[in-house]
Design a protein around this nucleic acid. Structure first.
Length: 490
RNA sequence: CGGGGUGUAGCGUAGCCCGGUAUCGCGCCACAUUUGGGAUGUGGAGGUCGUAGGUUCGAAUCCUGCCACCCCGACCA
């Protein structure tokens, strides 16, 4: 694909777009800021959904579905929430079209809604309005519900997967009797996300808290996982919010406690989106295209036959039949690419572009020797191995690849956490090296904003495992108790 | 939403200044030879030049509106 997809610089976003399109993941749609997720891209998203959904169920949650439209009055009940989302809402004002008499279809001004409907940018308000009717007693709690849905945020500037006007996500919304229980839930779900992103997507993350400035609109505390992309920019991969009693108060959701007192419930919300697709792509891809970790790849192994005659093809087919059923019995998804319309070299390149972790190629020579050629996508190595014990070998190899991809990303990430103690150093690292910069900060919103204005870097998080350490803010010189992580971010 | 740029076949483009219905490459189709890293040759198909108007005998080309995309900024999962 010519110029390196992983090289830093101005062309990076162009190459990201090219990769997304060429690997057949998604494309721009005719609708401003929206994308079409193509079947191959959607298959990857479905893998993410499946793994996450299983974890949600295991942690006691159930799925439900709430309306796409939110009456404006609901939306404005929580002050900081509406303020946070007001500038990016799609609004439904009419419910009918008509012919203007000359063949043009126009909005029927007579069909104006009395109250506008907001296309959900997130569902807290419609859900809390609903929960009001579900809760009376502590016996009704907790409510542990997740929704898989689309949401709309009218972003001014969009990028495939990373920021589109409409995106797919899941949003968990829980209600609890106590503050401690709600905080525990928010932290638990952050862990679920972190384990998923690291274990399945093979993308290392830093668990942390957002500063007041970066907090979700309406939350008391926002937990997040932050990942690092290969161009040195950070990406927020998931968030989990402790909402306190803000929404319960705004929507008047009260319950009678064991002690007979009427109290507001405590809330959390948490979500990850198709943005994870962007994280996956930007964390692992190389100049040959996508690199998918085996646990996520819709196709884990592709088999490419190499043949001249029908007899040769027939012999390979017979062997591949046996091999694929053995692999499928081990829960490995296999694609036998026996198209006779493409040559082997073309297929090799195409499946590499699509990120299939492991390729098995075999021809007459292999059939005579009882071997196959195994090619790893992650490190581009090839080896010729015996057909005996091949299934065991590739099962182990897939695990090894999963590990290798993670460790490569982890090494890169760890090399790009740079401690600095002066503002000059801070700026130099951001400009020359990128990645996270670990430094002292005086804890004020004002300092954070000024640093952002001057350097475009924001505080990605205060890591959960941060060590207490006395120091002084790199910007103001005021005292600080611990370091925070700054970075330029998507 | 502000600044800048772009829009010509599925993709990438030439032509635009200086108006006369369109260039080249990739891809696609057919046939032949090929097949262990993106094949080669020959022939062929495919375009109301983003869109709606205007100027003109005539518009891809000049003018205006609109739409979409890209880059920078502000905003953001």
């Amino acid at each position: 694909m010519g110029k390196g997809i992983t090289s830093r610089g101005e062309d990076y976003s162009q190459w990201y777009n090219d990769l997304v399109v060429k690997a057949d993941l998604a494309e721009h749609s005719a609708v401003r800021g929206c994308m079409v997720i193509k079947p191959y891209g959607y298959a990857i998203w479905e893998r993410m959904q499946a793994v996450l959904d299983k974890r949600f169920k295991e942690t006691g949650h159930s799925n439900a579905y709430f309306p796409l439209f939110i009456p404006k009055s609901f939306f404005s009940k929580e002050a900081s929430h509406v303020e946070g989302f007001a500038t990016e809402c799609a609004v439904v004002t009419h419910y009918r079209l008509k012919n203007d008499g000359t063949g043009n279809i126009i909005v029927d001004e007579e069909a104006k809604l009395e109250e506008e409907l907001i296309v959900r940018p997130t569902s807290e308000t419609i859900i809390w309005n609903t929960y009001k009717g579900w809760v009376e007693s502590y016996r009704d709690l907790p409510i542990l519900v997740n929704q898989w849905a689309n949401v709309v945020r009218w972003e001014m500037r969009t990028r495939l997967f990373l920021r589109t006007a409409e995106f797919l996500w899941q949003e968990g919304h829980t209600a609890h009797a106590t503050e401690a229980e709600a905080i525990e839930e928010a932290e638990r779900m952050l862990d679920v996300y972190a384990e998923f992103v690291e274990g399945t997507l093979a993308v290392p993350v830093i668990r942390g808290r957002k500063t007041e400035n970066e907090r979700f609109a309406g939350a008391l505390d926002t937990y997040c996982i932050e990942a690092l992309m290969q161009d040195g920019k950070a990406l927020q991969a998931g968030t989990s919010h402790f909402l306190g009693q803000n929404f319960a108060k705004a929507f008047d959701v009260k319950f009678t406690s064991k002690e007979g007192k009427l109290e507001h419930v405590w809330a959390t919300s948490w979500g990850v989106s198709t943005r994870l697709m962007g994280a996956l792509i930007m964390a692992h891809s190389d100049d040959q295209g996508l690199v998918l970790p085996p646990k996520l790849a819709p196709i884990q192994i592709v088999i490419v036959p190499i043949f001249r005659t029908e007899e040769e093809k027939q012999a390979i087919d017979n062997y591949v039949d046996t091999l694929t059923s053995e692999l499928k019995a081990r829960d490995i998804s296999v694609k036998y690419d026996d198209r006779d319309t493409q040559r082997p070299g073309f297929k090799f390149a195409e499946w590499e572009l699509k990120g299939v972790p492991l390729r098995i190629a075999l021809g007459a020579r292999d059939m005579a020797n009882g071997t196959v050629e195994l090619a790893r996508r992650d490190n581009q190595t090839k080896e010729t191995v015996s057909q005996d014990g091949l299934t065991d070998h590739v099962v182990a190899l897939l695990d090894e690849i999963q590990e290798a991809i993670y460790h490569k990303a982890l090494t890169f990430r760890d090399e790009h956490i740079t401690p600095v103690d002066s503002y000059d150093e801070f700026k130099a690292v951001l400009d020359d090296k990128g990645g996270f910069v670990s430094c002292h900060w005086d804890g004020t919103v004002e300092t954070e904003k000024r640093v952002k204005e001057e350097t475009k870097a924001t505080i990605r998080c205060i890591p959960l495992d941060v060590q207490d350490e006395d120091g002084v803010c790199i910007f103001t010189g005021k005292p600080s108790r611990h370091r925070v992580l700054f970075a330029k971010a998507y």
